[in-house]
Design a protein around this nucleic acid. Structure first.
Length: 841
DNA sequence: GCAAGGTC
């Protein structure tokens, strides 16, 4: 048997398809797809299926000095058990093995990991094939000319793994132990995350140090007086500043005197008119960075954009979204791809208009790599209802980007008018789109025009309003997420597949908050500490050095041992310095952690109120004077609290925002929330559905009084609910929205004998209805949302499943696949089993 | 429980 191993399932499927001329069939072994035809089997890994770690005796952070990690052994263990076992099974039966992982350094290492696993079971020939894209021609050619694994290149990758692990783990543990931050809130450091964090912290330092300067700008409305209709346009004052044009006036007297001179002038005389046409070239094909940036301007975070693109890739609508390439491969036929959109409601007309062009020649970017093509649509179109709103927006963006790359350039006409008035100069720049070009199919990039009328030299213009605007110079702007990713790409740190994860990690670690990201005090302290004692790990030089070393290993000019030992030696020296300052570093970190959680003054003792965490993991507000002062306030139970700059006027206490993904909300001042709850009275709705029934003796209280009542309650944590008045004896409760005034109407729900509620929030009142019915509907919706989290279930499928009585993942787990397939159109038993295995994992 | 890199 011939066994072919690829880097991922998708590649395995496509290679099997090509080599078998479409006859390959898929089997599932331990949840892993194995493609089979004749005597060949193809299996896809999932990237790295083994991982590096220290031996077990190093796992407890308290028992091991971080410096000991430098010389600790490193073991390799399976991280994807099912794949590793399937690979072993197949190897045992193989007569020939071919490694067909991606054609890049990491791919060579993944190939070597597979090689090691195969070698445990098999001692025959192991070959390596390399191809830069999965096309019929390239794949066949590669399999006709197999090569051997490049162990030097793989060793280069191994050196990276080891160096990253040792530096990252040793320094992370050192800082965490110094600040006594173990458990979930450890303080992490790494070759990629730390230089990225420094970038953000440095920018924040610039912003903090920025000293704004006042300046003035002048604007005058000009109106044509000659010829037909009057046309008014805005012009701006400028002056000659040492040979170059300047608009900002730095001196108030000069500005006011220019202002009055312009106001007093009778008219402005056109001094010059210049016209030029500019070609606006269509954009380059999408690589990951450009894609994230474009999705960012549609309001998607880097993380979200990638996650949606990955789903669209898995579903077969887009090509692989992790790529550096900006040049379409030769085998992409743009006309054929355009053709596949003809007839589509959304894209048909645009595709036809592009096909009608004389020549279809896609644009090319500077970066040409061979691993994957730029992101483009596959030509397989989603049916209506297959995509949710976000998926559709991202899909449309990629389709239109592809359209734009084959479209014509746009042409703009620029018109520049200079006029003189009162001894001063005014200018106006007009912009008009003459040829729409690619903007017709790609509405994302700006095509806004600016009107300036066609005037001629010597023409007299009337002066209307003259505005003197006082302004301030602005500090540099914070990096947005997509700008950060671009910056990382320029610095050559991280990879196309990991950069967005790194940013997400910085958020998770408590280093960043808000969007655009702002560093916390903790982040500043970590960068401070690293700059002082381990400068290498916050500099982009570490990666540059590593790249050089890896190239040397790959070319046989250095060995894995030499490079990793030199790096270990460098880290030993870092630790020599660190040791003496451990206490000082720890105090600085702890102080900064406190600064990020400080809310204001304690009303009981005057000490500091802090956001704290209970042993159970929930957040609350407590006094720094604990245990002498026992003042506390509750916080909402959902999300992670973030202390905002904004303060409450009454208590001078910082507002708190609860970060919970899409459910993020501003809680406001915790003291106000508690006070509001203390002042508010419970509003009775009716009998408690749990214990309020008449005559339920066992539920009566000691005095023999009747059951409980359901009431709207405002809690001190800021949440609101409909709960039983006998709480805590009866714990029945229904959630209610946090915001808006709740109105109790006269309408009654027959089923639950409770009044219907209306929430007044914003313009549109929300008819919430009976709180029990509302909660039941909410739970049903939640269950369907959970279903949609499974791969391959979109809104349309979820609806079909709900019709068949399956409206939660639990229902799906218990059902017989064949039975469900029979009752649900378009769903096969095989797909149901797939979902069930996804749920099981 | 530490990193960064693959991948889902």
């Amino acid at each position: 048997m011939r066994l072919i191993i690829t880097e991922k399932d998708n590649a395995a499927r496509r290679i099997a398809d090509i080599l078998s001329d479409g006859s390959a069939e898929a089997d599932r072994q331990k949840g892993v797809n194995v493609y089979r035809w004749g005597k060949t089997r193809v299996v896809g890994l999932s990237g790295h299926v083994v991982g590096l770690d220290f031996p077990e005796e190093y796992t407890n952070w308290r028992d091991v000095e971080p410096v000991e990690l430098i010389d600790a052994d490193i073991v390799t263990d399976p991280t994807q058990e099912n794949i590793v076992r399937t690979l072993s099974d197949l190897s045992g039966r193989a007569g020939e093995v071919v490694i067909a992982t991606d054609y890049d350094r990491e791919g060579e290492l993944i190939g070597k990991e597979a090689y090691e696993l195969v070698r445990e079971e098999f001692d025959g020939p192991i070959e390596r094939v390399r191809f830069s894209s999965i096309t019929d021609r390239e794949v066949r050619e590669a399999f006709d000319n197999p090569d051997e694994l490049d162990f030097d290149l793989a060793a280069a990758g191994e050196a990276r793994q080891v160096i990253d692990l040792i530096w990252g783990a040793a320094l992370t543990r050192f800082l965490s132990l110094s600040a006594r931050q173990l458990g979930n809130d450890f303080i992490s450091v790494g070759r990629v995350q730390s230089p990225t964090l420094k970038l953000i912290v440095d920018r924040e330092r610039e912003i903090e140090a920025f000293d704004p300067e006042t300046y003035w700008e002048l604007f005058a409305d000009l109106t044509t007086a000659e010829g037909g209709a009057d046309e008014t346009f805005e012009s701006q004052y400028f002056y000659d500043d040492d040979g170059s044009e300047a608009e900002r006036v730095w001196d108030e007297d000069t500005a006011t005197s220019a202002h009055s001179a312009l106001e007093d002038a009778d008219a402005a005389t056109v001094a010059s008119v210049s016209r030029r046409t500019r070609t606006d070239s269509p954009p380059e094909p999408f690589n990951t960075t450009a894609f994230i940036s474009a999705a960012g301007s549609l309001g998607y975070s880097a993380q979200r954009a990638m996650s949606v693109a990955e789903d669209l890739y898995t579903a077969g609508y887009l090509t692989y979204p992790r790529t550096d390439n900006t040049v379409y491969p030769d085998d992409l036929d743009p006309e054929a791809l355009l053709d596949s959109f003809v007839g589509s409601d959304e894209f048909g007309e645009d595709a036809e208009s592009l096909l009608a062009l004389d020549e279809i020649e896609p644009t090319r970017g500077d970066k040409e790599t061979t691993d994957h093509p730029p992101i483009h649509p596959t030509g397989e179109l989603p049916a209506w209802g297959d995509l949710d709103e976000d998926e559709w927006n991202i899909y449309e963006l990629v389709v239109r980007r592809f359209f734009a790359t084959v479209a014509e350039p746009a042409t703009w006409e620029h018109l520049r008018v200079v006029a003189k008035a009162g001894g001063h100069q005014l200018k106006a720049n007009g912009k008009r789109l003459v040829e729409e070009g690619y903007h017709a199919v790609y509405p994302y990039s700006s095509a806004s025009e600016n009107f300036v009328p066609d005037v001629s030299e010597g023409e007299q213009l009337a002066i209307g309003d003259v505005e003197l605007a006082e302004k301030e110079t602005q500090p540099p702007r914070r990096y947005g997420q997509s700008r950060l990713i671009k910056k990382m790409e320029e610095m050559d740190i991280g990879t196309k597949a990991t950069r967005h994860h790194i940013i997400e990690k910085l958020y998770d670690r408590g280093y960043l908050e808000n969007d655009p990201p702002r560093p916390t005090k903790l982040a500043e302290a970590v960068v401070d500490a690293a700059e002082a004692f381990a400068d290498h790990v916050v500099s982009e030089e570490m990666t540059a050095q590593l790249e050089e070393d890896m190239t040397a290993i790959a070319e046989g000019e250095a060995t894995y041992e030499e490079v990793t030992e030199a790096s270990r030696e460098m880290l030993r020296r870092v630790f020599d310095e660190l040791r003496d300052s451990q206490e000082e570093i720890g105090e600085h970190l702890q102080e900064s952690l406190k600064a990020d959680r400080r809310l204001g003054q304690c009303p009981d003792c005057g000490d500091e109120l802090l956001v704290r965490r209970s042993r159970q993991g929930s957040y609350f507000v407590g006094c720094d004077g604990f245990p002498d002062c026992r003042f506390t306030l509750p916080l909402p139970s959902t999300g992670e609290p973030l202390v905002l700059d904004e303060r409450c006027e009454e208590h001078d206490t910082h507002h708190v925002k609860m970060l919970a993904g899409r459910d993020t909300f501003v809680h406001g001042c915790p003291r106000c929330a508690a006070a509001e709850a203390d002042e508010s009275e419970d509003r009775i709705l009716g009998a408690c559905p749990e214990c309020g029934a008449d005559g339920a003796e066992e539920q009566q209280n000691e005095d023999g009084e009747g059951g409980g009542k359901l009431a709207i309650k405002q809690l001190r944590s800021g949440s609101r609910l409909a709960g039983c008045t006998r709480y805590p004896d009866c714990e029945y409760s229904l959630p209610l929205p946090r915001r808006g005034d709740i109105e109790i109407t006269d309408e009654h729900c027959d089923e639950h004998d409770l009044p219907e509620l209306v929430v007044q929030d914003g313009d549109e009142p929300w008819e919430l209805g009976c709180p029990v019915c509302n909660y039941q509907e909410y739970q049903a919706r939640q269950a369907i949302d959970d279903l949609e989290d499974l791969n391959g279930i979109g809104p349309a499928t979820a609806e079909k499943l709900a019709d068949a009585g399956v409206d939660s993942p639990e229902d799906l787990t218990d059902i017989d696949p064949d039975d469900l397939a029979q009752r649900t159109q378009g769903v096969t038993a095989e797909t149901v089993r797939e979902w069930q295995s996804q749920l099981a994992s």
